[in-house]
Amino acid sequence: MRIYLDDERTTPEGWTRAYWPDEVIKLLKAGGVEEISLDHDLGDDERGTGYDVVLWVEEAVALHGFVPPRMRVHSANSSAREKMEAGIRSIERLSAEKSKP
C-alpha cells in the first residue's frame, strides 16, 4: 500500500488517501505500507501535520524496531519540508543502524 497524506491535492493513481496523521499512523501500525508521501499543512494544526507522522515513525524505529516504508515529502511549505526531510534522513540512519548485525 502507498499512502498519500494531503488535504487538497488530487491523490495520485495507485495511492490510498489520508487526510490526517492519525489515519496514516493507524495504517502504518497495521502493516503492509510500502511508501508514504506527506504534506505538512493539512488545514487544522490541532489535528496534526505531516511532521507528526515523521516523529511517530522516528520513535517507532528507535524504540520498537519498526521497519519504515519509503518516505517522501510533497509539501509546498519550504521550512516544514526541510524539517520533515531532516527527520526522514534521521529515520534512514536509525533504520540502517538497527539492521546491522
Rank of each mutant, 00 (worst) to 15 (best):
L5G: 05
R17D: 03
Y4P: 04
P12S: 04
S90T: 07
T11N: 08
V61T: 02
E58L: 15
M1D: 09
T10S: 05
R72K: 14
G87Q: 03
P21M: 02
R72C: 07
Y4D: 11
I91G: 01
M84C: 00
S95Y: 03
V57M: 10
L55C: 11
S78K: 07
E85Q: 14
E35M: 04
G48T: 05
L28Y: 04
G48R: 04
G87R: 05
E46G: 04
S75V: 02
K98G: 00
E97K: 13
S78G: 06
S79D: 13
H40R: 08
S75Y: 04
K98L: 11
Y4V: 05
R89G: 02
S37E: 13
V61P: 01
L42F: 03
I36C: 04
E97N: 04
W56F: 12
L28S: 07
V24C: 12
M84W: 00
L63D: 15
E23K: 07
E8M: 15
A96C: 01
S90K: 14
V54Y: 04
E82W: 12
R93G: 01
R93W: 00
H40Q: 10
I88K: 06
G32Q: 09
P68N: 10
E59V: 02
S90I: 00
L38Q: 13
L27H: 10
Y51E: 14
H40F: 06
R9K: 15
T16V: 09
A96R: 12
E97H: 04
R9L: 11
L38C: 13
M84L: 03
T49R: 14
D44L: 04
V73Q: 10
P21T: 01
T16A: 09
S90N: 13
L38P: 04
A76P: 11
E35Q: 15
G87V: 01
Y4I: 08
E85L: 15
G50E: 08
A62M: 11
V33S: 07
G87P: 10
H74E: 13
K29H: 03
D52E: 15
R93T: 02
A76H: 12
K98M: 05
E13D: 14
S90H: 03
E58V: 00
M1A: 09
G32L: 06
